[in-house]
C-alpha cells in the first residue's frame, strides 16, 4: 500500500475542504477501498474518512421517503429500516458478513459502484435520490457503468432518499467466495408501476430490465416474466460465471424477488 495521509474531519465543511486538494479520496467504511489499496490498484495521496462527520449517519422517515445518511453502515440500515422498508433492510443484512456490515456504508458502496454490489440495485429500482454536498441526483442519472458514477472529484454523498414502494424485495445469487452478487435483482412496485434493477450481470453495471417492468406492471406475479428472455450479449463473463449463466439468473432472480415481494 502506498503511503498516504488519513484525515478524519468532524464536519461536512471540513470534509469538503479536506477533499478539495488533488488526489484526495473519500473513505467510507473501507471494506472495498482498503482491500483495493492493499492490492495497489489505487494510490490516493490523502484519504478523508467520512465516518466521524456529524449528521451523516442514521435512518429516518420523512413523509413517504426513507432517508439514509451517506455514512450509515449496512448493519444500521439492516436494523433500522426493517419496519419501514423491509426489502431494503433485507438487502443490507446480506451484504458481505457481519464484520463487513459493521464498517461498510451505503455512501461508500454507491460511490464505488461495483458492478456486483447490492445497493445500486435497490437505489435504481426504488428510484431513489442521491443527495450530495452540492446537488441531488436521480438514481436513473447516477450510475455510469462499472465503477463509475456521475459524482465529481471530492463530491460527498450525504444522504440517499428512498421512496418506499408498496412492495419491494431483493433476490441475490451469491458469488459464493466474495458474497457479492453474481446476479442480484431488486423489484419495487409503486402505484405508478414496477421497477426492476439488475446488478452483477451486465458489463454496463446496474441496469433496469424494462421488459420485465412492463410485464410486472401488468401482472405482479413471478410467471409474468415467463415469456421474456434475456440475451447473454453484454452480460459479464468471468471466472465465476458465463454470460449465458448470468442471463439465466437475471430471470430466475427476478421471479424470486417478485415472489418475495408479493
Amino acid at each position: 500500500m502506498y503511503a498516504f495521509e488519513l484525515e478524519r474531519p468532524k464536519t461536512l465543511d471540513a470534509a469538503k475542504a479536506a477533499l478539495a486538494g488533488d488526489e484526495a479520496q473519500a473513505l467510507g467504511g473501507g471494506q472495498t477501498l482498503i482491500p483495493t489499496l492493499k492490492a495497489r490498484l489505487a494510490s490516493p495521496a490523502k484519504l478523508v474518512s467520512l465516518a466521524a462527520v456529524e449528521g451523516m449517519s442514521g435512518v429516518k422517515a420523512e413523509g413517504d421517503q426513507l432517508v439514509i445518511g451517506g455514512a450509515t453502515t449496512h448493519a444500521i440500515v439492516a436494523a433500522e429500516a426493517a419496519l419501514t422498508y423491509p426489502g431494503l433492510a433485507d438487502l443490507a443484512s446480506h451484504i458481505g458478513d457481519p464484520a463487513v456490515r459493521n464498517r461498510g456504508t451505503i455512501g461508500g458502496s454507491l460511490a464505488n459502484n461495483d458492478p456486483s454490489a447490492c445497493y445500486p440495485a435497490a437505489v435504481l429500482a426504488s428510484g431513489a435520490t442521491i443527495v450530495t454536498d452540492r446537488r441531488q441526483i436521480a438514481a436513473d442519472a447516477f450510475f455510469d457503468g462499472m465503477f463509475t458514477t456521475v459524482l465529481d472529484e471530492g463530491e460527498i454523498i450525504t444522504e440517499v432518499r428512498f421512496p418506499v414502494p408498496q412492495a419491494g424485495a431483493y433476490a441475490k445469487f451469491v458469488q459464493p467466495a466474495s458474497r457479492f452478487a453474481l446476479t442480484g435483482v431488486f423489484v419495487a412496485r409503486f402505484s405508478e408501476g414496477v421497477r426492476v434493477a439488475v446488478t452483477g450481470a451486465s458489463e454496463e453495471g446496474v441496469f433496469r430490465w424494462t421488459e420485465a417492468e412492463t410485464a410486472l406492471s401488468g401482472n405482479f406475479a413471478p410467471e409474468a416474466v415467463d415469456g421474456l428472455s434475456v440475451s447473454p450479449d453484454g452480460m459479464i463473463g468471468d471466472l465465476h460465471g458465463t454470460p449465458a449463466y448470468r442471463a439465466n439468473l437475471v430471470k430466475v432472480m427476478t421471479k424470486r424477488a417478485v415472489a418475495a415481494a408479493s
Binding site: P35, P176, A177, S178, L239, H240
Partner: peptide, 13 residues
C-alpha cells in the same frame, strides 16, 4: 491464476 484470494476461490464456509 485468477482465483488467488478467498474472494475468488470458494472454501466451504
Amino acid at each position: 491464476l485468477t482465483t488467488h484470494a478467498p474472494s475468488t476461490y470458494k472454501i466451504p464456509a
